[in-house]
Design a protein around this nucleic acid. Structure first.
Ligand SMILES: [Mn+2]
Ligand SMILES: [Mn+2]
Ligand SMILES: [Zn+2]
Ligand SMILES: [Zn+2]
Lengths: 127, 127
DNA sequence: TTAGCAGTTTATAATGATTCTAAAAAAGTG
DNA sequence: CACTTTTTTAGAATCATTATAAACTGCTAA
């Protein structure tokens, strides 16, 4: 499997559960935006063996810590995660009712016009 | 009081609790970014009479519905609200560890460089 | 002014996403 | 295999938020 080494390199043991979750998360063409419960459903469809909810949480947090997943700041009762860990922008497609990724290069520079000191500017993180 | 008419116009009865909460929320110079619990603390400091937590939630949601408050999309266990209901940007000041408002006019236009149909573009909402 | 309705407040319970716990299972090591 | 460390797991605990329903308040028609 292609994920075994990836996990080992990160100091994570390549368990059956983690490998299955890797398949669901990363073996796809496009970015995946998901909640824990959506992920759990996908896992159920993908495999016959059951993975406990606690493990799904544990694994997602472990992957987040290692930089393989990112949380998405959004107003929802459930936390959203993103397999696209680049620094990118989210747009909401009102018609299709889903999040769209646009890379920084797709959006062009954010120009702060307001007068702020150089020092101040550099300590700002665009949300 | 200056808030009585504002509430009446919105179809909200100007109760003692709502007026007190208005004072805390809106009688200030700068934008206020807050959680329900932070607001509760401010209310405690501001007034002698106690307002129940349920009322704080009710009022904040009523004000949000009427357009006097806005939720802020952010990753936190608590929901953040904003007294600045203009369509504006949030930056995080890493040094001061707090959210900064920059108005759209302070940031300049967001240029989507990626090729998308006009129709598609218009149904996108920048988050 | 007052009766009565509708809207509001309140304490408390319920909900639900997430985290914690601790015991069992699995993986790494030699 | 023997041993240690990490991981999984079911279930309990936590905590922000919402629901409930009874008491209270504001409004207004008569
Ligand atoms: Mn996390
Ligand atoms: Mn709300
Ligand atoms: Zn994304
Ligand atoms: Zn703001």
């Amino acid at each position: 499997m292609k994920y075994i080494e990836k996990l080992r390199k990160s100091g994570l043991r390549p368990t059956k559960q983690r490998l299955q979750i890797c398949e669901v998360l990363f073996n796809r063409e496009k970015t995946f935006h998901f909640t824990i419960n959506e992920l759990e459903q996908k896992i159920k469809n993908h495999t016959s063996s059951k993975i406990s909810l606690a493990t799904v949480y544990n694994t997602v947090h472990a992957f987040e810590k290692k930089g393989y997943l990112k949380q998405i700041p959004i107003n929802s009762s459930e936390t959203y995660f993103d397999t696209n860990v680049t620094d990118h922008h989210h747009f909401y497609d009102l018609k299709e009712e889903k999040l769209i990724d646009l890379e920084n290069s797709d959006v062009g520079p954010i120009n702060i016009l307001k007068k702020l000191t150089e020092k101040r500017l550099n300590q700002l993180k665009f949300l």
